[in-house]
Each structure stands twice: as structure tokens, then as C-alpha cells.
């Protein structure tokens, strides 16, 4: 196990300078999710117009893996349809278990590939994506 495989520079950049950190107005779909085993928590807000996620924002507390994953996810789902976002969430869940998957437009996400070698940390990476799934379920 090499630490550099896990903590890539891209991850630390998203952790230190999170994209889309903040809140949206009350009309936004709001999901609160905890990771009860470790205390991480996220609030994800989705501004959905018609079938399209116009914007996603998050607040929360957690480790570098969970917060950078949230940052990357909110970038990736912007302007995607709910169906596309859900497909991406499913793709992420195979990816984080170690399957070879590419995220063409959002290659930052691929920096999380090392997480699959740290089983105890997979739940950190999936927290934001689980919040996304919940939000999509609420919407449809």
C-alpha cells in the first residue's frame, strides 16, 4: 500500500479548494446524509430544472477523501440529466470497488482510483454519491 496512490495531488487540491461548497435556496432538492460509523456528514443540494441538474452544492464535514469526492461529484453532475447523473453514480460505485472505468470529461474523479486498495475508506468516497442517488430518487 502506497500512500501516494491514495492521496493524489488532485484529491488534496479538491480537499483544500473544494468546488461548489455552499448552499442553494430552499427550492433546491436537499439531502442530508451521515456516515454513522465515522461521523462524516454531508448536505447536498441540487438545483433541478426540468430533467437537468443545473447546479449542485454541498456543505459538510469529513476527511480528505469524502470531501474531495463531494467536490468532484458536484462538478461532474452539473448540466447532466437525472438519468445521466444516476448512471454516473452507478459507474462510480463500480469504479471505487476497483473496476477499470473512465470518466472522460471528469478525469479528476479517476484520481480516487487508489481508494479501492483501502477498503476502510471506500465508504468515505461514496458518501457524496449516495447523497446524489437519494436526491435523484426524491426527484423521480
Amino acid at each position: 500500500m502506497q500512500l501516494d496512490d491514495l492521496y493524489r495531488r488532485v484529491i488534496m487540491d479538491h480537499y483544500k479548494n473544494p468546488r461548489n461548497r455552499g448552499t442553494l435556496d430552499e427550492q433546491a432538492v436537499t439531502i442530508n446524509l451521515n456516515n454513522p460509523t465515522c461521523g462524516d456528514r454531508i448536505q447536498l443540494q441540487l438545483q433541478v430544472e426540468g430533467d437537468v441538474v443545473k447546479q449542485a452544492k454541498f456543505t459538510g464535514e469529513g476527511c480528505s477523501i469524502s470531501m474531495s469526492s463531494a467536490s468532484m461529484m458536484t462538478e461532474a453532475v452539473k448540466d447532466k440529466t437525472l438519468g445521466e447523473a444516476l448512471a454516473m453514480a452507478e459507474k462510480f460505485s463500480s469504479f471505487i470497488k476497483g473496476e477499470q472505468v473512465e470518466f472522460d470529461e471528469n478525469e479528476d474523479i479517476e484520481a480516487l482510483s487508489g481508494v479501492s486498495k483501502f477498503p476502510a475508506r471506500i465508504k468515505c468516497a461514496t458518501l457524496a454519491w449516495n447523497a446524489l442517488r437519494k436526491g435523484i430518487e426524491q426527484q423521480s
Partner: peptide, 24 residues
């Protein structure tokens, strides 16, 4: 973050606890 710390320590063979310790 304590989880990151615990992961780094684990790679060095050191087992500590990180989290809320069932005392939220």
C-alpha cells in the same frame, strides 16, 4: 482529518481509532 491520519498510520503498522468514538 483523523480518518486520513488513521489511514497513514495504518500504512506504518500502527492501529489507532479515528471517529466519534460512539460519543457524538
Amino acid at each position: 482529518h483523523p480518518h486520513d491520519l488513521a489511514t497513514v498510520l495504518d500504512t506504518k503498522g500502527i492501529a489507532i481509532r479515528a471517529g466519534h468514538h460512539c460519543a457524538q
